[in-house]
Amino acid sequence: MKGCEEVSHLPSALLIKAIDEELPGGEAQEVESHLATCDSCRRRYQALRQVSGRIESAVAARQVELSSEQRTRLETELDARELAARAKPGASHVVRRLSWAVAIAAALAFLLLVAPQWRQSVKRTGSAAAAQPSAFEVDGESFVALPYSNPDLPLNTSHIVQMQVPVQSLADAGIVFEPISNEVAAQDRSVLADVLLGMDGRPVGIHVLASE
C-alpha cells in the first residue's frame, strides 16, 4: 500500500477532479482508497468540497428578476422571424413559380371555402401597394391580407408563390379590381400575383403583379 508518506499525498488537482467526477474509473478508485486511509488528504478533500459548495450556493443565490413580458416579447420576435425567414427567398425556403393549375387546390379551394366569412372589401387599383389596414409587408413586399380560415395556426412561416389567380376568385374573396387601367379587364381574366402562403399551405396574402 502506498501509505501516507509526504511524497505520495494526493495533489489538489486530483482531489478536485475526484470531487467533480472527472477522473477515469481507475484513478477515481485510487483516490478513493487513499482517502480511506489518509486523514490529511481527506481533510483537504473535504475542505475543497466545502468551498465548492459555498460557491454553488453563492451562484444559486444570485437574484434574477423575471417577468412574463420578457417571455412574451421573445415569442413575438420568434414569430416575426419565422415569418420573415419563410417569405425570404433563400436557403431554408423556396419561392416557387407555380402555375395556377398546380396551386389551384391549395389556393382556390381555400378561397371558396372561407370567402363567406370574410366581408371586408378591399379596393385595389392596379398593382400599387396600397396602405390599407388589411395590408402587411413581408420582406418589403406588400400583401393584401386574404381571409384566413384557421386563426389558431400562427402565421409565422410562409412561402411566396407566383401564380395566375382568376379575378373572379379574388372578387369572391372580397378583393375588387377597379378597371382603371387595362391591366385587369373582364371577370374571366386572371392576374399574375405573388401569393403568400401560410404554414398550412393556404394563402394568407396576395400582391397583384400584373394581369395575364
Binding site: 393549375a101 382568376p166 404554414m199
Partner: peptide, 23 residues
Amino acid sequence: MGNSVVGQADTLPLPSTTWKADY
C-alpha cells in the same frame, strides 16, 4: 372557374404537404 393553365407546370411536389412538414 377559368382554369387556364398558364406557364409551364414545373416541379410538382404537392405544395401543401411540403408546407405542412415545414410548419
